[in-house]
Design a protein around this nucleic acid. Structure first.
Lengths: 257, 257
DNA sequence: ATAATAGTGTCTCTCAGACAGTATGTG
DNA sequence: CACATACTGTCTGAGAGACACTATTAT
């Protein structure tokens, strides 16, 4: 911050990119849009775009999400992830992108993008796991594979110590619904009785409604219906709900280095 | 990311700001520079400046730190914190600032800035706590009070679950030195025997040298000299070293919302 | 001697993880 | 009926926090 001249600074473009997650068919899924223009025409990218002159960064991310999902009010949680600005990450010019992470419940209308480009949710394990068919696996534009990997790790670690898992389910929900969120995000099975005890031991994580579920509430194939809950006011989980396995050496920061 | 024209994007300036922490006289301290120009002439700011055209963001932060500290090789840890881009945060123009957090040991040469502006470490509690003399408390430029608050919370939470406390001490160090770091950052006293047990229970957090301290090693006023250690290879602490008190409701994210 | 710090041993409480067993729905 | 899910009770082991005690230095 030394000398100043309104045109003496290097020309940068500032964009936002948002990784919007939801749980679809029991799998952690992320919203991607297919690019219609070069570079990376035909590749898939995180929804995003330029920040406008008098617009807050978070507002820009919400605006881009609204344009792609067709939802005017974003019904979930949004937080800043990190900023990616390596020279050359966009071949056209110097672009610094502020990445956001969003989480929302799977809603019935499966996303109608208002521009011509295709937008759809992709299961994250179809994007990265080696078992999926490489021909079916989409190419990711720019450095969005790196951003997405950081976003996934952020979501995974956030479930451990915050109440954000509840942002993935619609109210009312059962403890089983919540457990399916954890299992989808972490990619592992959780011990049912212990999970229930842990969730209920956190003060005001969920509040019971006193009624029981029924109707095909969560694609249940039978069994005793669960009690219904709504989100409580707790934001931080204490005690935390820790990922099993995972001897902690592998756990990196939420993409922040 | 829709239409593209090299000059059709709004003019943004991209800067980096770095909150560089160290422990001086048992207090968490941060490097600030006094501004010589308007706006905020005479106020104190985090060291920072414009990112150059072909420069990585982290490189820009390291460059600014080198210019202010006079150290050519930064002897600590640096990580991205968050990006602050609210319109109006700089009265001159639209500036998006990528903030970094750094930690390093207190080194003998107390920082010689190479430009004329004054640079010094400030104890963080002198900046924020109400007990300090308001006349002595410096004004912080721009939104740097907000950035600094997020940075402090980041450092505090990082000590819990990473081995970064060791970035604050010079090798070799004693368990007592390490405990003083935690006490300075968290602003509380820690139970000595339990702290020792916890540190040694983490595999490869510290490795013993087999020798004992002496000489006025850590301003010790007497007492049995401690065994000496150097940093181990562990980066994540497991089990974590948790802040006492703190019923978790108050613990926010590391400034990321 | 006192004071101050380093280090050891042990007890208790909480909580994670595992298991057995019961309750209540579906086909 | 079998089967699947929801829920309860209990045991074990790891670890946090607190305390008592010993060891080694400075003054």
């Amino acid at each position: 911050m030394t000398a100043h001249d309104p045109h003496a600074f290097p020309p940068f473009a500032v964009t936002v990119d948002a990784a919007l997650f939801t749980i679809r068919a029991g799998r952690l899924s992320v919203l991607l849009v297919e690019r219609g223009n070069d570079p990376y025409r035909g590749a898939w990218a995180l929804p995003g775009g330029f920040v406008e002159q008098d617009e807050d960064l978070e507002h820009a991310a919400l605006r881009e999400l609204a344009e792609e999902t067709g939802l005017e009010a974003f019904p979930g949680h949004l937080e800043q992830l990190a900023t990616f600005g390596r020279p050359g990450r966009d071949p056209r010019m110097r672009v610094v992108s502020v990445a956001y992470v969003g989480m929302m419940p799977a809603l019935p209308p499966p996303v109608g993008g208002d521009d011509a480009s295709a937008a759809r949710f992709w299961a994250t394990d179809d994007l990265f796991d080696a078992e999926s068919d490489p021909a079916e696996r989409p190419q990711l534009a720019f450095d969005h594979a790196e951003i997405l990997a950081a976003a996934i790790e952020r979501v995974r670690s956030k479930l451990e110590y915050t109440a954000l898992a509840a942002a993935f389910v619609e109210e009312p929900f059962t403890i089983g619904d919540l457990r399916l969120v954890y299992e989808a995000v972490w990619g592992c099975r959780l011990h049912r009785p212990n999970f229930r005890r842990k969730v209920l031991s956190v003060p005001d994580f969920v509040v019971p409604l006193g009624t029981r579920a029924r109707s095909p509430h969560s694609a249940q194939t039978g069994g005793r219906p669960g009690e219904l809950y709504r989100r409580g006011t707790a934001t931080m989980l204490h005690p935390a709900i820790l990922r099993p396995g995972l001897d902690r050496e592998e756990a990196e920061d939420g993409g922040l280095r």
